[in-house]
């Protein structure tokens, strides 16, 4: 793609795809932007009027808004922490040749294949349920009072469920990084007197930095939009205890039928997501060439 001719040819060839993508992105975004400035409620759809900044003001001053922002951050950071640390640990474990390695690896990847609502339902009814969940059984076996997870620790419960779903992804990416680590480097470090902890800190972690960055970037994008797990388990409650930004927008649109307000929330979410993306690219993106 060096010459001017091939460059312009290339531009021509990829134009249709890029234009299609642009339309795909710009049209919904434009419509959302447009609705966010309208008084538009589905309970009374015939009456719409220009709202100016009211929808934004209303959404931001909602007491649930700050709670949702905090919950979103806790959710994202909590899941990131668990999946990155857990992913490194599991990757280190299954990197070593063990008996039944193939089966173990498939088992570890399998949560990723379970759809989010299904996974959340299983966790809700079979694992975390206060009377017939596995955790309750364990608690009773130990002679403890069973925990009503979704009532007592709603956000923590959702963090656990989502982390369970994303752990395989993190593990897989980190495992491939681990396997590309040069064995002779490790041996050289061993001869240089580095114990296993030093080798991990000075060789393994720096080697995996790029993979960790990828995991953080990709997961953050998806974790900002967590929704199904909340809908199926806590419905954002009790109160606003497990409402994140996405769920707050859902509530505006589908429970209050306030299209204008939901659109304003959506635009705010897009802006926040972009801020986070810029911040992330600045902070960790330098690991990517």
């Amino acid at each position: 793609m060096a010459t001017r001719q091939t460059q312009s040819l290339a531009r021509l060839m990829r134009a249709p795809a890029i234009i299609l993508l642009l339309i795909w992105m710009v049209v919904p975004l434009g419509m959302t932007l447009y609705y966010s400035f309208l008084n538009y409620n589905l309970l009374n759809p015939a009456v719409t009027s220009w709202a100016g900044w009211f929808n934004y003001q209303y959404f931001v001053t909602d007491p649930a808004f700050m709670a949702a922002i905090v919950n979103t951050l806790v959710l994202v950071l909590g899941v990131l922490a668990i999946t990155v640390i857990g992913g490194i640990a599991i990757a280190l474990l299954i990197d070593k040749p063990i008996w039944g390695q193939g089966i173990v690896r498939i088992l570890i990847i399998s949560p990723f294949f379970v759809m989010p609502p299904v996974a959340a339902l299983i966790w809700k009814n079979m694992i975390m349920h206060p009377s017939y969940g596995v955790f309750a059984d364990i608690a009773r076996f130990l002679g403890l009072q069973p925990v009503d997870w979704f009532a007592q620790y709603p956000l923590t419960s959702i963090v656990i469920i989502v982390a369970w779903q994303w752990l395989p992804f993190a593990t897989l990416i980190l495992l491939t990084a681990l396997q590309s680590l040069d064995g002779e480097q490790m041996e050289a470090a061993e001869m240089d007197g580095a114990g296993s902890v030093s080798r991990f800190i000075h060789l393994t972690l720096p080697h995996m930095a790029r993979a960790i960055t990828v995991v953080i970037l990709i997961q953050t994008i998806f974790l900002l939009g967590i929704y199904a797990e909340i809908l199926v388990t806590t419905n954002g409650g009790p109160g606003n205890a497990s409402t994140n930004l996405t769920y707050l927008i859902y509530r505006a649109a589908r429970l209050n039928f306030d299209i204008g307000g939901a659109a304003a929330g959506g635009i705010i979410a897009v802006i926040l997501a972009n801020l986070v993306a810029i911040f992330l690219m600045r902070a960790v993106g330098k690991n990517l060439d």
Binding site: D182, E184, A188
Partner: peptide, 13 residues
């Protein structure tokens, strides 16, 4: 003992 490897095995970062 100190060893020099064929691939050099330097620490890249």
């Amino acid at each position: 003992l100190a060893m020099v490897f064929q691939s050099y095995a330097l620490y890249p970062h």
